[in-house]
Design a protein around this nucleic acid. Structure first.
Lengths: 213, 213
DNA sequence: TAGATTGTTAATCGATTAACAATC
DNA sequence: TAGATTGTTAATCGATTAACAATC
């Protein structure tokens, strides 16, 4: 039940960036901005900014521009940053722990409510306000807390299996760091893949472009 | 001096994914694949795969398809994965350390040759085969080892300053995890931004799509 | 009112898909 | 040779940019 019909993925992907820049402006006490000014700041065209925002509503005012405070509120609402979806983290290795400790979940629409691993020596370890649980207790936990989202920081081989366990338990979204493409067969499941390896290889390509060969 | 003129960013961004899937096929002892089979596996069109690959050369054979082993070699060469660019990591916090410990740099075109932080208590700590150095020693270090790439795991405020220090020292690429858009004013510098926060907010949007409101 | 800047329609550009002749 | 599948051109689709009337 999409709230905004026919909004293209490219537009959605730019929203967090708008949000970020607008917050920066606000921090600098800028409360008003035109699409032209913002376009220069963000290295986009003014036209694109107006098009993008108008997918969701007419937030500007002719002859004035946009009110920064109001626009932040609108974008926050569009993204759903106030929703506080319950998230669990699977895999408390290097990457998993860094994500758990480093990310500001609260300001991005989520609450981290559980961390799971299968390694005996990790279970019981405290991380922020939480304690690492045995991944065997997943079914129990979900029965009680019904998390909506899982963050996967596990090896590719385990990712598929964990997904198949979590979806029947009610998990509806995945933030996937595992080296595996979650081309979910399930409908009504949101997946956001973060392939750090792919990103690094892309950089390698661009480095090779700079270097003659 | 681009080796392949006019290859679109969308194509380049798909290359690592092709590489990943082909490696998986090879691991399953599949040595031959048609664009149609691969398209089903990857959830693409066969046409797109053929178009993409033909930006770089005619790697297939009519009536046969593609040789998996050979194609992996070609893509590896296109990406430049054998080049072993020297990379340094700036910022040995949670995320920085996870990257340093977790990533397989060697298989992705890089060698991690240095880790830097400014925190006194971190300096001297061992990480893999390296030891964390004082960020003050950056100039010295670059003089000796001339790293080509820097991985930025530092706060946004510090990112800009560090870049401006590193570019005159010969660094030509940035893998940027800092919450800051490196819209580098420099030419001939490769930047790959990883905005985990943006990714998480995008997931939040898609979760909100699933939930009626 | 005059100036500025939006919202929106139309034009352009680029990327994806379809089609098919070439060829292994 | 017949069948299969590529490489490549043409058609379609989508996203970005330009233009301008509406309006604050």
């Amino acid at each position: 039940m999409p709230r905004y019909e026919g909004v293209s993925p490219s537009v959605v992907r730019r929203l967090p960036r708008y949000y970020r820049f607008l917050r920066e402006l606000l921090a600098k006490d800028v409360h008003r901005i035109s699409s032209r000014e913002l376009s220069q700041l963000m290295n986009l065209t003014a036209s694109q900014i107006r098009q993008d925002l108008n997918c969701f509503g007419g937030f500007g005012q002719q002859g004035y521009g946009y009110n920064v405070d109001a626009l932040i509120g609108e974008i926050s609402g569009i993204l759903g940053l106030e929703r506080g979806y319950r998230a669990i983290l699977i895999g408390a290795g290097n990457l998993g722990l860094a994500i758990a400790r480093h990310m500001s979940f609260e300001t991005k629409g989520f609450n981290l409510v559980g961390i799971f691993d299968k390694k005996r020596e990790l279970i019981g370890q405290p991380v922020r306000h939480l304690v690492i649980s045995d991944v065997n207790r997943l079914e129990n936990f979900c029965g009680v807390f019904s998390p909506q989202v899982a963050i996967l920081c596990i090896p590719p081989a385990a990712a598929k299996e964990i997904c198949e366990r979590l979806i029947p338990l009610g998990v509806r979204g995945f933030w996937n760091f595992s080296h595996y493409d979650l081309t979910l067969d399930y409908k009504d499941v949101a997946v956001e893949n973060v392939h750090l390896g792919d990103s690094l290889m892309t950089l390698c390509y661009h480095m090779s472009e700079l270097t003659e060969d």
